[in-house]
Nucleic acid binder design. Structure first.
Length: 425
RNA sequence: GGAGAGAUGUCCGAGAGGUCGAAGGAGCUGGACUCGAAAUCCAGUGUAGUGCCUAGCAUUACCGAGGGUUCGAAUCCCUCUCUCUCCGCCA
C-alpha cells in the first residue's frame, strides 16, 4: 500500500494516478473516512491518557476514601473508552480496507494509456520465422507428438488442465534447469518455495484472494491460498523483518507451481497451454535500496532477454501502459515471444513480466532496512519471470516445428535434454 | 493428531498486577586513551502515530496475534499462530 499520509499531502497526485490507471477508487470517500478515523483516534487517545493518569494516582498508599473515588472514576472512563474503541475499530477497518485499494504511483516514464493496446513496444529481437508450410499451433503439434494431453487433463481435473508426456516432460525439465543456470550466474539464490501461502501475504503482495474477479484459489477454512506465482512466497519471505543494509540487494529465484482460476478467460487467444489453471514457473525476486530499484529492474529485464535469446526465440519488449499496470507496479516490462501458431499468421504472446513495485509491497508487508541516518526505511521490491514453463513450451514448440510436425530442440537445450528432436512415433 | 516447554527491543536475555518502554549484555553512534588499531573507560541508542510555542516537549500504542479480567496487564485467564522436545502417523 501507499503511505496513508500521502492522502493528505499528495491528494491530487493520487487522484491523477488513479485516473491514469483507469481504476475505480473513491478517493474522496477514503479521505473522509481518514478524517473520521483521526478525530476518533484523538478522542480515544485522550480517554486513554485520562485512564492512565487515574491509574497512576493509585500507585502509592492512599486513604480508602480517595482510593474508592478514583476507582469509580476509572470505571466510568473504562466504560466510555470501550464505546469509543469499538467505534474506532469499525472505522479503522473500513479505512484500512479502502486505503489498500489505492494503487502505487507509476513511473513518470511509463506510457499513459488505458489498456494493453497502449503498451509501448520498445524493442524487437529476431525475425519471426517464415515457414514454407502452414504453421500449426502447439495444441495440434503437442497432441500429434503425444507430448501434451488436454483431453485427459479435462477429464480428470477439468478444463484448462493438461498432462505433459514423454519427451515433453524432459523438455520442460530442461527449460527449468536451463533458466535456473542462467539466473544463478547472475548471483541469485535458488529456492523451491511453498505452493500455498497465507491470505495476509497474498494481500501484502497486492493480490486479492477474495471476490468474484479473484484469480486466486483459496483453501476453504484454512486462511491460505494456492499461490499464483512464487512472487508471493519470495516476497513474503522477509515480511515483518528488518534487513541489514549490508545484506542488500537480496536476489532470490524461486521455482513453484502456479495456480490461477482464470475465471472467464477463454477463446482463441488463451487456447491450449497459453492460459491454464496450473503451471510451473521460475521467478526472480529482488529486495534492494530505493535508489537501486530502477537499475535492478533493467537487470532483471536483461536476464529475461538473455534467456530467450539463448533459446533463439524472436520477441519484443513492451513497456506497460498505466492502465494495464497491476496496482503494486511502478513500472512493468513484458517480453512477448513470437508464437507462430497464435492467431492466423502468428502473433506475439507474453512470456515474461517484470515489475518494479518500489516500496508498495514492502509497506504492506513491513519489510525495512536501517539506513545510514539511523532511520528505518522500506526496501524496494522487484519481481520478474525467469521462465514460465507452459508459455515457454508454447514458444519452443511453435517456433521449432518442422514440416512433418517434428520439433527441433534449441541448441542451448540439447545438453539438458539429451536429444535433438521430438518426432512422431 | 496427542502430551509438555517456550515466543520480550537490531540480537541475546531478565522480568512474574502499579516503582516497566522494559534490568544486564552484545551491537551501533559519539567521546577519552593511542602514531593508528585492538583492548579499556565514559556517554548515547526501540518502533509507529498524534498534538504543539517543532534542533525540542507532551501524549498514545506496541513485550508472538486476537479477545477477556482489572481502576491499572509484559506479568492473570481464554483462543489462535509459530518454535522446540516426546509420542502417533507418514512420502
Amino acid at each position: 500500500m501507499i503511505d496513508i499520509r500521502d492522502i493528505k499531502t499528495r491528494y491530487s497526485e493520487i487522484e491523477k494516478n488513479i485516473r491514469d490507471r483507469y481504476m475505480n477508487v473513491d478517493l474522496k470517500k477514503i479521505a473522509e473516512d481518514m478524517d473520521k478515523r483521526s478525530s476518533l483516534l484523538a478522542e480515544t487517545e485522550a480517554l486513554r491518557a485520562r485512564r492512565n493518569e487515574t491509574a497512576a494516582k493509585m500507585k502509592g498508599k492512599l486513604d480508602p476514601d480517595a482510593r474508592s473515588r478514583l476507582i469509580e472514576e476509572g470505571k466510568a472512563i473504562k466504560e466510555e473508552l470501550g464505546k469509543k474503541e469499538a467505534e474506532l475499530a469499525e472505522i479503522d477497518r473500513i479505512f484500512q480496507e479502502e486505503a489498500r485499494t489505492i494503487p502505487n504511483y507509476y513511473s513518470p516514464e511509463a506510457p499513459v494509456g488505458k489498456e494493453d493496446k497502449d503498451n509501448l513496444a520498445i524493442k524487437f529481437y529476431g525475425e519471426p520465422a517464415k515457414f514454407t508450410f502452414k504453421a500449426k499451433d502447439h495444441v495440434q503439434l503437442g497432441e500429434e507428438l503425444d507430448i501434451l494431453d488436454f483431453e485427459n487433463g479435462a477429464k480428470v481435473s477439468g478444463q484448462k488442465f493438461y498432462y505433459i508426456k514423454n519427451k515433453g516432460v524432459i523438455l520442460q525439465m530442461a527449460l527449468e534447469r536451463y533458466a535456473m543456470d542462467i539466473v544463478l550466474k547472475h548471483g541469485f539464490t535458488p529456492f523451491i518455495t511453498p505452493d500455498i501461502a497465507k491470505e495476509e501475504i497474498l494481500q501484502g503482495i497486492g493480490f486479492n484472494p477474495r471476490g468474484a474477479e479473484s484469480n486466486i484459489y483459496t483453501l476453504e477454512g484454512t486462511g491460505t491460498c494456492l499461490v499464483g506465482t512464487a512472487e508471493i512466497t519470495l516476497g513474503g519471505y522477509y515480511s515483518g523483518e528488518i534487513i541489514d543494509k549490508k545484506d542488500l540487494p537480496i536476489k532470490m529465484t524461486g521455482l513453484s507451481h502456479c495456480f490461477r482460476r482464470e475465471a472467464g478467460g477463454a477463446g482463441q487467444y488463451s487456447k491450449g497451454l497459453y492460459r491454464v489453471h496450473q503451471f510451473s514457473k521460475l521467478e526472480m525476486f529482488i529486495y534492494c535500496l530505493p535508489e537501486e530499484s530502477d537499475s535492478f529492474h533493467k537487470e532483471i529485464l536483461a536476464i529475461e532477454e538473455e534467456i530467450f535469446q539463448g533459446l533463439g526465440i524472436p520477441y519484443r519488449i513492451v513497456d506497460t501502459a498505466t492502465g494495464d499496470l497491476g496496482a503494486p507496479a511502478y513500472r512493468k516490462y513484458d517480453i512477448e515471444a513470437w508464437m507462430p501458431g497464435r492467431g492466423d499468421e502468428g502473433e506475439y504472446g507474453e512470456v515474461t513480466s517484470t515489475s518494479n513495485c518500489t516500496d508498495y509491497q514492502a509497506r504492506s508487508l513491513n519489510i525495512r532496512y536501517r539506513d545510514d541516518d539511523g532511520k528505518l526505511k522500506f526496501v524496494h521490491m522487484l519481481n520478474g519471470t525467469a521462465m514460465a514453463l507452459s508459455r515457454a513450451v508454447v514458444a519452443i514448440i511453435e517456433n521449432y516445428q518442422e514440416e512433418d510436425g517434428a520439433i527441433r530442440i534449441p541448441q542451448a537445450l540439447v545438453p539438458y535434454c539429451g536429444f535433438e528432436k521430438i518426432e512422431r512415433k
